[in-house]
Design a protein around this nucleic acid. Sequence first.
DNA 1: TTATAATAATAGTCAAAGTTAGTCAAACAA
DNA 2: TTGTTTGACTAACTTTGACTATTATTATAA
Lengths: 156, 156
Amino acid sequence: MQNRNISDIIEQYLKSILAEASQIEIKRSEVADQFDCVPSQINYVIKTRFTLQNGYLVESKRGGGGYIRIAKVDLISDPDILDEMIEYVGDSISETKAFQIIQTLYENDLLTHKEAHLVAAAIERSTLALSDNKLEDLIRAKIMSSILNRLRCADQ
Amino acid sequence: MQNRNISDIIEQYLKSILAEASQIEIKRSEVADQFDCVPSQINYVIKTRFTLQNGYLVESKRGGGGYIRIAKVDLISDPDILDEMIEYVGDSISETKAFQIIQTLYENDLLTHKEAHLVAAAIERSTLALSDNKLEDLIRAKIMSSILNRLRCADQ
DNA sequence: TTATAATAATAGTCAAAGTTAGTCAAACAA
DNA sequence: TTGTTTGACTAACTTTGACTATTATTATAA
């Protein structure tokens, strides 16, 4: 349970604040100063320990008044079905197979009727319409994976 | 959700007035004085936060008695705005601008919170993640257009 | 009085400078 | 090997001010 490195310490610090509030906003440089590390270390911590799979949503803004916002989200009780689908999608998927996945999501109440239509609109052939079919299937897979991943969140 | 910079503060001020009236008229120099900034800062705020894709119409007049008028547009009662948005998207759009559109659709109840998140997941940079930025903006535009079109038929 | 010119009073544009956060790969450590 | 640390470089957003454009008002000339 002891902290072995600075990343673990920062992770624990952020999670201790998140225990109080459901959402926090930090200034990257301030936290880096606080823990005497380079700013990009904060990115490393977030990328490795505050993923959506772990139940965190991260947003940020650059420039004056910039920030990094970390929000804790509730995950659906049974993520296995999503994991299987993401694996099935892999890095390439046809329109037909993607439609089947969307249908399954709808039947399992992970998507409403309208949501299913919107997702379908995003990935259908007539939308992507790339002359390179391989590339089209690849992009469709990226979109499907991202959406499946997002469905881990109970709310949102 | 604090204000982090003067632009955010001015944005919030203007939106708080707009919450009362559907349309407001301001004097650029007065608002600049009020918030102790240069007048062109007001232009920056308007240009980045009160565009049509943000759901606002802006008119102005120079010279004596000049003004800047900001009006809120109602997407639901004005379906033409969807067409204008599709036209605005064109065949290429950045992540930032697409996010603004999604935000506007959400604020006007054309998308639920979850639907907005799903659409965002489909078009965000980390999803499309193409080395070719031009192609990425092009595909994002195709998806956004398809989604906007789908929203024309209110219920599915 | 009327037309025109000058002046004042606005708002717009643009680019430089400033302030953040993100990426990526090399070096390092367990 | 795998995971961590570091820093140079990049990208995004904000602030500022000099310069420009437009409109209204006032002064001047015919």
